[in-house]
Design a protein around this nucleic acid. Structure first.
Lengths: 226, 226
DNA sequence: CGGATCATTATGTATAGACATAATAACGTC
DNA sequence: GACGTTATTATGTCTATACATAATGATCCG
């Protein structure tokens, strides 16, 4: 009887509605006795279910089945190359543009960059089996780059960053947007087509490193299991 | 020195590039000695970092910093009412349609429903502060409903399901789609507008319960931290 | 040399016992 | 009855120890 067995049994009781949404369940001590395991084992199982949003736990108050479960799904956010290769396709990319320029005010603002400071702008087209897969536009603070700059035509910016710049925190946003003229041209779709967009901001402890927009080709779906 | 402190210190070393991507880190025993804690405490910390994709662990092979980290972000998928209320707005909904009908072949196929069997079709408009927030279309197997059916005009289908039907597994997909005539009319946007769509399929152990499409009003963004 | 076998090793998990912590419930006082 | 204090309780975490398990590397044998 391992902690996964305990979790499975608890999950079964929730699904079978032995324990109803909003109802308290027995405390760890009692469950440990019932299953004949140590309390730590029950704790591990219940903690896991709480992390995925099925249980709500509070000290002293006890454990209850979530009434309106906020399901937590984990999204895997791979490097594009891995994503394409996982589909059994060949990944390639073309660096379309690379120049120093003034970032738009909203971008500079969100990243805490002083307005009027030029940053590196990079534009890349990712291909899967030779067909457009995603249009990447990126603002990057060149402070984090060595001199001379890496050759981003041969190694993708993202992969260079993850292997050469300190791991970082950040946030990710997903949205639907109409294709602007540039993305439409690059991806070979009509202007105004509905495209899935991923925006990612990455920070080190002190300052913003980079802001990327990934505009995916039509038909892109992000899938997860619950 | 708790496990969160251990995690913080390990994370610091990864970010500071003391431990490079792809490199091995000391084993649990050694770290436990260094930090003056039990091995279980180190284990908890390293396991947590491995779950979020920053470390790769294999028995006997040891622990290494992920070379190309597949970042795992957790998405919270709340009930719409909670989502709207969390934004400080008032949630309301209108049941637009409720009837028995034949589900389209792709829907029936994905859910494993026999073709030719009529199911319940429900169409709902969710409002935030009186403005269109999301257009919900749903196919539901009436097997899971009591007779007579609940009054879905007064309690939203989703909330009725989570509180009255056994918890279930399922999958969720996100995509960008152009507004079809019906969604455009209901949400008050031009046809072809880029809309964010969430599709969710829910199963019990045996059979499919429901398939929902949530078509969000323009401007909808799904955000997560890493 | 190739391949099967076995010892070694790092992580994975279980255990009993202990103390910490947060939150509730009970109590006493005014 | 309202309010502040204290006791109680369930979860949270840590420790030391033990054994399980998977993967590697070394060894032995044909």
């Amino acid at each position: 009887m391992g902690w996964e067995d305990v979790r499975a049994e608890v999950l079964r009781r929730i699904r079978a509605r032995d324990w109803l949404p909003g109802a308290m369940i027995p405390n760890e001590e009692a469950l440990a006795q019932e299953f004949g395991v140590a309390r730590a084992t029950v704790n591990r199982a219940l903690r896991d279910l709480a992390e995925s949003g099925l249980l709500e736990r509070r000290r002293k108050a006890g454990t209850r089945v979530a009434a309106l479960p906020v399901r937590r799904a984990t999204l895997e956010i791979p490097v594009i190359r891995q994503e394409v290769e996982a589909r059994g396709q060949v990944h390639a990319f073309r660096l379309l543009d690379e120049r120093m320029a003034l970032p738009p005010v909203p971008v500079a603002g969100q990243l805490g960059w002083a307005s009027g400071a030029a940053k590196l702008y990079l534009e890349t087209l990712h291909l899967a089996d030779g067909k457009p897969y995603a249009h990447e536009t990126r603002w990057l603070d060149p402070v984090h780059l060595p001199d001379p700059r890496p050759d981003f035509a041969s190694i993708s910016v993202n992969e260079w960053l993850v292997t050469h710049v300190a791991f970082a925190t950040g946030d990710i946003a997903f949205a639907a947007e109409a294709a602007d003229p540039r993305s439409a041209e690059v991806l070979g779709v009509p202007q105004g087509a509905a495209l899935f967009v991923t925006e990612r901001t990455t920070f080190t402890a002190e300052s913003a490193i980079t802001f990327v927009r990934l505009i995916h080709a039509p038909g892109y779906r992000m899938v997860t299991m619950v």
